[in-house]
């Protein structure tokens, strides 16, 4: 009885949990069915919303799954000491390593978040993780190839990579000044000591692989809700905000950059293909704005900034949106003015 009371203190009672979950499912299901089966404009808009949401989700979820499994593998197989040995402590070097880490650790903007969180748990220095988080969605072989396929070898490709690395490096360096407990969300990153505290004997590799999968699954549950809410927001924007009038506003060295950066944030297109999308803006937008779109979008968009909330404190998430925003804006406007 006392044990049960203690558990009830930590969690809601399991029966209440199940009752609420089932009730919620029924209610939501009913609501969705009613709207989906109606006639007229609202239903048409809802249809469009659902299709776009499913598109973003189906496209992104394999990457989040992969990121979560990698995170689980790190949790079980990477030990803290070896990580500390390989990662430099010296701030400038650390931020540089972080911004280039994507080349050896190819993850896109959905997979990068659980991996970063896990690496922090293993004692990764703050600047390395921040630089990795911001740069990895662009600085990796896949995105290099897709950008090359869309734009060829030229100013757009070079600008995209150089500015991404510089901005990630700069923001990472800034976080040298901060302490982990000021930055990370309490509870998101718990040192692993207690988890392995009662390891009696090292488990066989097969058992540890299963364990890695379960840990990865926990990570998936932590992160998926942010991805889903983010995808829903992005899909709502895509359904409601008229892109054509938005784009019609865009001219001039500053306004065009701002517009495409806002668009990148709102669209939340995966970084592996955003180059092809940017291609369709080339004729009507300034070169700087294209670079702004390709640099800022992968670092921060609706779904990734929501996922940041699972790792960082709210204030820090705001910095992680505003700093790249300001820096890519400056970079893109400079391109417009000087080239």
């Amino acid at each position: 009885m006392t044990k049960q009371a203690a558990e009830n203190h930590a969690h809601p009672s399991p029966t209440a949990f199940l009752r609420r979950l089932l009730g919620g499912l029924l209610l939501l299901g009913l609501l969705i069915s009613i709207v989906a089966r109606g006639e007229g404009n609202l239903t048409a808009q809802f249809q469009t919303f659902v299709t776009i949401f499913m598109g973003i989700f189906v496209e992104a979820v394999p990457f989040l799954l992969a990121g979560s499994v990698v995170s689980g593998l790190i949790a079980v197989f990477v030990n803290q000491e070896s990580l500390a040995r390989f990662v430099p402590r010296q701030p400038i070097l650390a931020a540089l390593v972080g911004s280039l880490l994507g080349f050896t650790f190819p993850v896109c903007e959905c997979g990068v978040v659980p991996v970063t969180r896990r690496l922090y748990q293993k004692g990764l220095p703050l600047p390395v993780g921040i630089a990795f988080l911001l740069a990895a969605p662009v600085v990796n072989p896949v995105v290099l190839l897709s950008t090359y396929a869309a734009f060829g070898w030229g100013p757009v490709l070079i600008g995209r990579f150089v500015f991404t690395i510089l901005i990630a490096f700069g923001v990472g360096l800034l976080f040298t000044l901060a302490q982990p407990d000021e930055v990370l969300r309490p509870g998101a990153v718990v040192p692993l000591a207690d988890q392995h505290g009662h390891d009696h004997a090292p488990l066989p590799v097969r058992e540890r692989l299963w364990q890695a999968l379960t840990v990865g699954g926990d990570d998936f549950f932590d992160m998926a809700r942010y991805l889903i809410v983010g995808s829903m927001l992005a899909a709502t924007m895509q359904t409601v905000v008229p892109q054509n009038t938005l784009l019609a506003l865009g001219s001039g060295p500053l306004l065009s950059v701002l517009l495409l950066m806002v668009l990148a944030f709102v669209l939340s297109v995966c970084s592996t293909v955003d180059a092809f999308l940017a291609l369709s803006f080339v004729s009507s937008f300034t070169p700087g704005s294209i670079i702004g779109f390709l640099v800022f979008g992968p670092m921060v968009d609706i779904k990734s900034s929501l996922m940041f909330l699972g790792v960082f404190k709210r204030r820090i998430v705001l910095y992680l949106i505003l700093l790249p925003l300001a820096l890519s804006l400056v970079a893109a406007v400079l391109v417009n003015v000087y080239f």
């Binding site: 979950l21 919620g24 499912l25 939501l28 299901g29 969705i32 069915s33 989906a36 404009n41 048409a44 808009q45 809802f46 249809q47 469009t48 659902v50 299709t51 776009i52 949401f53 499913m54 989700f57 979820v61 549950f221 998926a224 809700r225 889903i228 809410v229 829903m232 359904t239």
Partner: peptide
């Protein structure tokens, strides 16, 4: 849990349709 199950609800309960004139 409800949020993670939303894609299932939307995918299974809403008759799937490709983008059309509304979009």
């Amino acid at each position: 849990v409800l949020i993670v199950m939303l894609p299932l609800l939307l995918g299974w309960l809403v008759p799937p349709r490709p983008l059309g004139a509304t979009a």
